[in-house]
Computed example of a mutant assay.
Amino acid sequence: MELLNDMALFVEVVKAKGFRSAADAMGMPNSTISRRISGLEKAIGLRLLHRTTRKIELTEAGQIYFERCKRIVDEARLAHEQLGDMVAQPSGVLRASFPVDFAVTYLAPLIAEFAGLYPAISFDFELNPRRVDLVSDPFDVAIRMGESESSQLIARPLASLTPNLYASPGYLKRAGEPGKPADLEQHECLGILKANTWTLHDAKRTSTVAVGGRFTLNSVGMIRRLATLDMGIVLLPEEVVADEVAGGTLRRILPQWHGTPTPVYAITETRLLPAKTQRFIEFLRERLAR
């Protein structure tokens, strides 16, 4: 415990850029902090700081030690906050990254519900198809679909979304309705980027079908919209096209067949989360699993 306290003092000295500023911020005598840091250096056996009358500078060893200590001290603080938040309303700014179309079409109502449950939390969201770097970007959590990311990050499964085949009544009237997966080869199929095969499953079989069409897109929202405008067949999760199906602009075809389930993950840098992030992940897991 004494070592952890000295590490915290060291972090505060570096952040304050001096012993006097750190002493003022922490309400401790300057001489006490200086003595504790000197003791820390002696225990380690390396000099951590170059001291001058006007400022301090990190040594090479000090820079390495600071980066490690800061992470340890931050996690210790979060652990303390987390215990307090168990009996208090979580608060603060929740920074999250979402895939654009999934957030707009499916997560938005859930986010609104969560915001109503926790009025002390404010939100800073980025909707972007790129996979943000949680180590260098200051996000609390990233929601991602598909395979989990780097093994250095923590991936918490939230749900698994199964894509089905849909088309508009207008398209089916014009082009006819496929009766089996192989018939899709003769149809306009709207897919993501350069995907030229769809793998479909029924209760006993798997069928891989070559598909194509006039449109190549990188937006699920645009694919869905074109499908409602009679431009082709889509393979999308029910959750993404629920409004269109309810409104009659799309209907399911080949109902005994479905695509390969797509996992949804909450990605974080650490397992130790502040209450705002933990509650958000737990909320999404509960709602998406319904």
Results as ranks from 00 to 15, higher is better:
residue 152 Q to D: 15
residue 52 T to D: 06
residue 268 T to W: 00
residue 177 E to F: 03
residue 8 A to Y: 11
residue 208 T to Q: 11
residue 230 D to Y: 01
residue 224 R to G: 00
residue 144 R to S: 14
residue 88 A to M: 07
residue 7 M to H: 10
residue 158 L to D: 07
residue 80 H to N: 03
residue 126 E to N: 13
residue 36 R to E: 13
residue 118 Y to D: 02
residue 159 A to N: 02
residue 23 A to G: 10
residue 205 R to Y: 08
residue 157 P to Q: 11
residue 37 I to K: 10
residue 216 T to H: 11
residue 141 V to I: 15
residue 157 P to D: 05
residue 212 G to H: 12
residue 129 P to G: 06
residue 15 K to P: 00
residue 274 P to L: 08
residue 174 R to S: 14
residue 178 P to M: 04
residue 226 L to Y: 05
residue 216 T to P: 00
residue 194 K to A: 15
residue 17 K to F: 09
residue 289 A to P: 00
residue 208 T to R: 15
residue 144 R to V: 14
residue 82 Q to T: 14
residue 200 L to Y: 07
residue 117 L to K: 11
residue 289 A to G: 15
residue 239 E to C: 02
residue 51 R to C: 03
residue 34 S to D: 08
residue 73 V to P: 02
residue 265 Y to D: 04
residue 227 A to W: 01
residue 113 E to D: 15
residue 224 R to N: 05
residue 174 R to K: 13
residue 60 E to F: 11
residue 243 D to M: 01
residue 68 R to A: 12
residue 11 V to M: 05
residue 150 S to I: 01
residue 69 C to W: 13
residue 70 K to N: 14
residue 62 G to I: 00
residue 276 K to I: 05
residue 5 N to S: 15
residue 17 K to T: 10
residue 81 E to S: 05
residue 101 D to S: 13
residue 106 Y to T: 08
residue 213 G to L: 06
residue 7 M to Y: 09
residue 216 T to E: 10
residue 194 K to I: 09
residue 181 P to S: 12
residue 25 A to L: 12
residue 116 G to I: 02
residue 3 L to N: 13
